[in-house]
Structures are given as C-alpha cells and as structure tokens.
C-alpha cells in the first residue's frame, strides 16, 4: 500500500459502502428462495453427467471399453451356456412315453385311449404305432444287423402302442406316473414305458450344469465388478479435485456420489449393449458353421441367440454392477478426503 493510511481507509470506506449496499440488495433477494423440483434435480444430474463425460472423454471411453470388454465376455459365456443348456433340454424333449396296448385291443379301444392321452395337459402329440410299424422301427434300430429281425416278420410278437411326445418343460417321470393312473390306460394297456435311466441322467446333468453355470455366473460377475470397479476408480480419480472441492463446500455424500453413479449406469448399459452386440456377431458368424457341422449340431441341436430375458437381465445387471462400482469408488475417495 503506497498511499497514506488515512487516504486508503477513506477510499476503502467509500468502495465498501457501495459494495455493502449491493451485497445487502443481493442477499435481500436470497430469502425464501424456491427449492429445486424433482425434474430440476434430474436435469441437474444429467447436466453434471454430461459435464463429467465432456470434461474427461478419454477416461470415460477407457472405462466404457473395460466395461464393454467385461460384459462381452459375460454375454458370450451366456450364449455358450444357454445353448449347451438347450441341447440338454432338447435331449430331454426327445424322450417319449410309450403306452403298450393289450393283445387283441380293438381299433375303437385304441382310438378311445389315444383320445384320452391327447387330452392330457402335458401331451404335445399321441401317435399310434401298429405292430408292423413297430417291427419296421426295430429293424431300423438294428441297422446292419436287421437280419436278426427276419424271423419275426412271419409271426410279429411286438405289441401295438401309442407314443406320446411331451410338451416342453414336462417332467417325463411325473407324466408317466399320471398316465398310469388313468382308467382307460389300466383297461386297454399292458404297461407304460419310458427311458427311465436316460431321463434321470439327463435331469441330473441339467441340474449339475445349471448349478455350474450359476456358480460361474457369480464368479464372472464378481470378476466383472472388480474390473469395472478398478476402471471406475481410475476414472473417478481424474475427478478427485472436483470431489474434494464439492466436499469442502458442504456437498452431501449423496450429492457427490449421484452423478458418478449415473455415469456408472450409462457405462454399464452401453457396455452391456456392446457385449450383447459382440455375442450377436459371434452368433451370426457361428450359426451356419454349427448347422453344417455334424459334430457341432449334435452339441448345439438348436443354436440360438440369447433370449430377450437374458439380454434385459444382462443390461440391468451391468447397469447395477457399474453403478455400485462407481458408488464404492467415489465413497472411498470421499472418505479419503
């Protein structure tokens, strides 16, 4: 201060007077101010999200790439496991129940029984197999050894039967048990047959497979959460100054965390969309090869893309995992400061 003290004081006093009046006027307008509406809060969060993306686009992209890569692996894993699971289910569906008719059952009795069986809720179709047709099937089954069946053709001992194809998702053992309780079956049939051992093995295999998939899914999601969490931590570290200033200004933890959680949701959704896209690309590239390869079509008899349910679940899980990863990263940073 080069000027003399009284002169400076005088100058300050006059400026101070003007400023005080201006401040008082401004503060006068600051009483009873309205609060932000929910829509306003939403707009502010979106604006903050957009600002965050714009201010650190490379960090956002790097995190998005990590999330996309992670959820591409998850989506491809689901593509494989859902098709493998379907192949077991298809094998289960191929199992049939046969109701063998009593010797000498008349055509009207056979038709009556067929009608009763078709009416059952679990029945997809009921096909009559005559003794001759049964012999033909037997010969086909024997293949190169069909000569063994030659002696049977003169006096065919095979009984007539009705073969039931079951609806999807039907428990073959329960269906067979239910059929055995029907009066008409009791009256016109010798016995009810289904491949009990195969059904049991397939059921056990499916249960084991589903448990394995569930376990692997949790493991994979935990790894995904770790990867996304690390990426989020790095991304949020780029905003550490902003987080610290907001905290110093008295922002609540929720106020600081919300925009970053929203960013996590966006990254999770976009990452899962990319992941589903990658899985679709793989599906498109492999579908023809699977159909043409006899070995692969045995493994994947109905090669299909992810179900709508799986895609929606993947999007939601990705959004939740990314949001939680962001939440924990920011909370950690807020606590550190």
């Amino acid at each position: 201060m080069a000027e003399s003290a009284p002169a400076v004081r005088e100058l300050i006093r006059s400026v101070e007077q003007d400023m005080r009046n201006a401040l008082t006027s401004l503060w006068g307008q600051s009483t009873n101010l309205p609060s932000m509406t929910l829509l306003g809060k939403g707009e502010a969060a979106v604006a903050q999200l957009w600002r965050s993306i714009r201010s650190a686009p490379f960090t956002f992209l790097a995190t998005l790439c990590t999330v996309s890569l992670t959820f591409s692996l998850v989506a491809v894993f689901f593509l494989l496991t859902s098709n493998l699971s379907s192949s077991i289910v298809v094998s289960q569906q191929s199992l049939r129940i046969r109701v063998f008719l009593k010797d000498g059952a008349s055509e009207s009795e056979m038709k009556q029984l067929q009608a009763v069986l078709e009416q059952q809720s679990f029945t997809e179709s009921a096909r009559f197999i005559s003794a001759d047709a049964a012999l033909d099937e037997f010969e086909v089954m024997l293949g190169s050894h069909s000569a063994f069946a030659d002696g049977l053709s003169r006096d065919n001992p095979l009984p007539q039967s009705i073969e039931l194809t079951l609806r999807e998702g039907t428990d073959i053992r329960q269906a067979a048990a239910q059929i055995e309780t029907l009066d008409d079956v009791d009256a016109f049939s010798q016995f009810v047959f289904y491949p009990q051992q195969s059904a049991q093995r397939l059921e056990e295999l499916l249960a084991l497979f589903q448990q394995g998939v569930l376990f692997a899914t949790f493991g994979l999601l935990a790894v995904a959460a770790l990867l996304v969490g690390s990426a989020s931590k790095l991304a949020i570290y780029a905003h550490r100054d902003e987080v610290e200033i907001l905290k110093l200004m008295g922002a609540s933890v929720r106020r600081i965390v919300t925009p970053y959680m929203l960013e996590g949701v966006v990254q999770g959704l976009l990452g899962a969309m990319v992941g589903c896209g990658v899985a679709y690309l793989i599906y498109m590239l492999c579908a023809d090869s699977v159909a043409q390869s006899s070995m692969l079509s045995l493994l994947f008899p109905s090669f299909h893309y992810l179900s709508v349910f799986t895609v929606v679940a993947l999007l939601l899980v990705a959004a939740a995992v990314s949001a939680l990863a962001s939440l924990f990263s920011v909370r950690g940073l807020v606590r550190e400061q």
Binding site: L33, S35, M36, G40, E43, L246, M249, A251
Partner: peptide, 8 residues
C-alpha cells in the same frame, strides 16, 4: 446455491 437446492 446449487448445493442448497436452488433452481437454476
């Protein structure tokens, strides 16, 4: 003011 929830 933003932290006090005042509209934009």
């Amino acid at each position: 003011l933003e932290l006090q929830g005042i509209p934009m």
